[in-house]
Computed example of a mutant assay.
Amino acid sequence: MDQALNILVARLLAQRFVLRKDPLARRALIDEVFRESLEHRLADCGLQLLENPYAEHIAVALQPQMEEWVFGEGDAWLSNNMGLPRDGIALLVVVWALIILPKRERQIARVAIGSEDQSDMFGAEKPIEHGEGVAQGISEDALYADFGKVLGGKMRFATNLGQLTKLGFINRRNRMIYEGPLLDLMIDYAKLAPRIINGALADILKLTGTQIAETEVDA
């Protein structure tokens, strides 16, 4: 087991992420003894395993108690350890919301893209699907049309997309943006999803309701 464990740890550190269907990654997910050994080995280095059943990859990250030691403290503290500017972080959140939120809804319902309106009495018994069958891509042009100007303009938008690609958050093909290996791992769904759904979305709905009310008054 030591050799397999060494190989998996080395790959996680060198490659940053490993497909969950990889034999060693699968072993870490289903073999309790191997998983505990992996977590202990990573913990000895101040790291922790990142995985969730909805993500297509597994990865590693710093343990929370190690962040200040690695990234500094006080005036030297970095607000984000990826080196992203504020408009880059904002773009990342927008992309996450447009790709991961719909994907998670499909995964929970066990449906593929285009099958949302079809009933399936055995859907809950199906395994959770991954990949582009459930994670739909978004158009770069449409994303820029909707958010580009408030995210720094054309040059900043293109630069930040390149940085998100380099960091492994997204993949880009034919001017389409797809989920990258780390998009569903490095961002905490449980914390961010309610803020988006109950925060930003609630504000939009409130604004829409106000506009409807004003229309009715004018009429």
Rank of each mutant, 00 (worst) to 15 (best):
E129T: 10
V150H: 00
G162C: 06
Y144L: 01
L164S: 04
T165I: 01
H130Q: 15
A142P: 00
L167T: 00
A112P: 00
E105N: 01
L161H: 10
G153N: 06
G123S: 00
I197Q: 10
S139R: 05
G137H: 05
G133D: 13
K166L: 03
K149L: 08
I177R: 00
H130T: 15
L161Q: 14
E132W: 06
L192R: 02
Y189V: 09
G162E: 06
Q136L: 07
D117Y: 12
I212P: 00
F157R: 02
K154C: 08
M176R: 13
N174K: 11
E132Q: 09
I196D: 07
A213P: 12
I108L: 08
Q163M: 13
G199Q: 13
T208L: 09
R195Q: 13
G123C: 01
A124H: 05
Y178G: 01
I196K: 03
G137K: 05
M155K: 15
D146E: 14
R172E: 11
V134E: 02
D188K: 02
A202C: 07
Y178K: 04
A200N: 11
R175G: 12
L185N: 05
M186T: 14
V150S: 00
T159A: 13
K149M: 12
F147I: 10
V150W: 00
E140S: 01
L143T: 04
G131H: 08
T159M: 12
I187W: 03
N174C: 06
D188W: 04
V150L: 00
I108H: 09
L182T: 08
G123Y: 02
A109R: 12
Q163V: 10
I196E: 06
S119T: 14
I138R: 01
E105L: 02
N160V: 12
G152M: 05
S119I: 14
L183A: 08
D146N: 10
E179T: 12
A109F: 02
D203R: 06
I197A: 13
M186K: 13
M121D: 08
I108G: 02
M186A: 15
R195E: 15
I108Y: 07
I196W: 05
D117L: 13
T208W: 05
R106Q: 12
L205Q: 14
Q118S: 03
M176Q: 14
G148S: 05
D117C: 06
Q136T: 10
F122H: 07
A202S: 09
G152T: 13
G148M: 07
Q211T: 04
Y189D: 12
P181D: 08
I187S: 03
A112W: 00
R175P: 07
V150N: 00
D117M: 11
Y178I: 14
R195M: 14
G153L: 10
Q107D: 03
G131N: 11
F169I: 08
F122D: 06
Q163F: 09
E179G: 09
I108R: 09
Y178M: 11
D188N: 07
K126N: 01
L201P: 01
G123R: 00
G199A: 14
I170T: 13
A135F: 02
A109I: 02
I212E: 02
L192H: 02
E179R: 07
T210R: 07
R104W: 08
G133W: 06
P181L: 09
F157T: 06
R156Y: 04
F169R: 01
A202D: 11
Y144W: 13
A124S: 06
A202E: 10
D120G: 03
R175N: 15
L201R: 09
Q107I: 02
A190Q: 12
I138P: 07
A135N: 05
L151H: 05
E179M: 10
